[in-house]
Deep mutational scan, measured.
Amino acid sequence: NQASVVANQLIPINVALTLVMMRSEVVTPVGIPAEDIPRLVSMQVNRAVPLGTTLMPDMVKGYA
């Protein structure tokens, strides 16, 4: 099963993503693939993302 990107903490809106904010985990439904974590660094989410939430492509500005 493919690992997805999961919030490692509350990720506020309009804050640049850092490695420490994200972890990889096998979850259902599948979200952004874990291998895209380096690409996500410095991008921003378009809504607050609670701890443990799977990041979906539509949550990250400029990802999709």
Rank of each mutant, 00 (worst) to 15 (best):
N1H: 13
Q2Y: 15
A3N: 06
S4D: 01
S4A: 03
S4C: 06
S4H: 01
S4Y: 03
V5Y: 02
V6L: 12
V6G: 01
A7D: 01
A7P: 01
A7G: 02
N8P: 02
N8G: 08
N8H: 08
Q9L: 12
Q9K: 13
Q9V: 14
L10M: 15
L10K: 13
L10G: 11
L10E: 13
I11E: 00
I11Q: 01
I11C: 03
P12E: 12
P12V: 04
P12M: 06
I13Q: 14
N14T: 06
N14Q: 09
N14L: 06
V15G: 09
V15R: 13
V15E: 14
V15Q: 15
V15M: 15
A16D: 09
A16K: 09
L17E: 00
L17G: 00
L17M: 12
L17K: 00
T18V: 05
T18C: 04
T18R: 12
L19A: 08
L19N: 05
L19D: 05
V20G: 12
V20Y: 15
V20T: 14
M21V: 03
M21S: 04
M22A: 00
M22C: 03
M22T: 00
R23F: 03
R23M: 04
R23T: 06
R23Y: 05
S24N: 07
E25F: 06
E25K: 08
E25D: 14
E25G: 11
V26Q: 11
V26L: 10
V27R: 09
V27A: 08
V27Y: 03
V27I: 08
T28D: 15
T28L: 08
T28V: 13
G31N: 01
G31H: 02
G31T: 02
G31Y: 02
I32L: 05
I32Y: 02
I32V: 08
I32A: 01
P33W: 07
E35P: 07
E35I: 10
E35Q: 13
I37K: 06
I37L: 10
I37A: 08
I37Q: 05
I37G: 04
P38Q: 11
P38Y: 11
P38D: 08
P38H: 13
R39F: 11
R39C: 14
L40S: 00
L40Y: 02
V41K: 05
S42M: 12
S42Y: 08
M43P: 00
M43R: 08
M43I: 04
M43E: 04
Q44V: 15
Q44A: 13
Q44W: 12
Q44L: 12
Q44N: 11
V45L: 14
N46Q: 12
N46F: 13
R47C: 07
A48T: 14
A48G: 07
A48W: 11
V49Y: 02
V49S: 02
P50A: 09
P50C: 07
L51A: 11
G52S: 07
T53I: 09
T53G: 12
T53V: 14
T54P: 06
T54M: 03
T54Y: 03
L55V: 08
M56S: 06
M56P: 02
M56D: 04
P57Y: 10
D58A: 10
D58R: 07
M59L: 05
M59K: 00
M59I: 05
V60G: 00
K61Y: 09
K61S: 14
G62Q: 11
G62C: 15
G62Y: 11
A64T: 14
